[in-house]
Computed example of a mutant assay.
Amino acid sequence: MPTREQIVTFLDDTPPDPATSPWVAGRGPERGVEIAEPDDVWATWYLDVVAHVRGALGLRVLGLQHVGSTSVRGLPAKPVVDVDLTVADPDDEDAYVPALERAGFVLHVREPWWYGHRLLRHPAPRANLHVFGPDSPEVWRHRLFRDWLRGNPDDRALYARVKREAAAATNDADEDGTAYNRRKHAVVREIYARAFAAAGLTG
């Protein structure tokens, strides 16, 4: 388990070498951002993803959880389910990537410098599978953020507004999803601060 300090301290996800790209060859960020109204089908998509992952990896799955906006009832979101998968060693791709690829997932991102993160995508149901190790604080942060939004309608409404504004600005500028995330950054950190305090992680 990560320490309290590790959970509340955000590690820069920028690669140490500016020439290093996190994107696997032939992959890259998608242009444009679609924000859909809340849809109960997203919970079913998550269960389908769980079945695919567990069927592929069995006991190599140390944890699976539905995170991101599709995991918060009533929150508009990109119609793509975000799922955190915990494995023993995300750097040991041979232990899980081939099996997931046989289940229809495609590796898009490799970030060994950022908690060992890998991102695999699934086309139907549409899903982003984020792979981390058992000591990654990012998994804990995702869950805290999700649970805070589920229980706090004011911040849920704030985040919904910011998501829509960020998507509109990104689409108007013909930019990709990384620009969308940058536009949300300040409010996301503001919400995290409240969630950390409520969890007793900060004073």
Rank of each mutant, 00 (worst) to 15 (best):
T3V: 10
I7M: 06
I7N: 03
V8I: 15
V8K: 01
P16F: 04
D17W: 10
D17V: 09
A19H: 12
T20W: 06
W23V: 04
V24D: 04
V24L: 10
E37I: 08
D39F: 14
D39L: 15
V41F: 05
A43L: 10
Y46W: 08
L47M: 14
D48E: 15
V50N: 07
A51Y: 08
H52E: 14
V53G: 12
G55P: 13
V61D: 13
G63K: 13
G63V: 08
H66R: 07
S69K: 00
T70V: 04
L75Q: 00
P76I: 07
A77N: 03
K78L: 06
V81Q: 06
D84N: 13
A88Q: 12
P90L: 02
E93H: 11
E93L: 15
A95H: 09
V97G: 07
A99C: 09
L107Y: 10
E111I: 08
E111H: 07
W113C: 11
W114M: 10
Y115V: 00
L119M: 14
R126H: 11
A127G: 03
N128D: 14
N128T: 06
L129A: 00
L129D: 00
V131E: 02
V139K: 00
R141G: 01
L144T: 08
R146V: 13
R146G: 04
D147M: 05
L149K: 04
D154I: 08
D155E: 15
D155K: 04
A157V: 12
Y159K: 02
Y159N: 03
Y159I: 04
R161Q: 14
V162D: 01
R164G: 06
A166T: 03
A166W: 00
A168C: 11
T170H: 06
N171P: 07
E175N: 03
D176E: 13
N181V: 12
R183V: 05
R183P: 04
K184V: 06
V188W: 00
V188Q: 01
R189S: 01
E190N: 00
Y192I: 01
A193S: 15
A193I: 12
R194I: 03
A195H: 11
F196V: 03
A198C: 12
A199D: 12
A199P: 09
A199F: 08
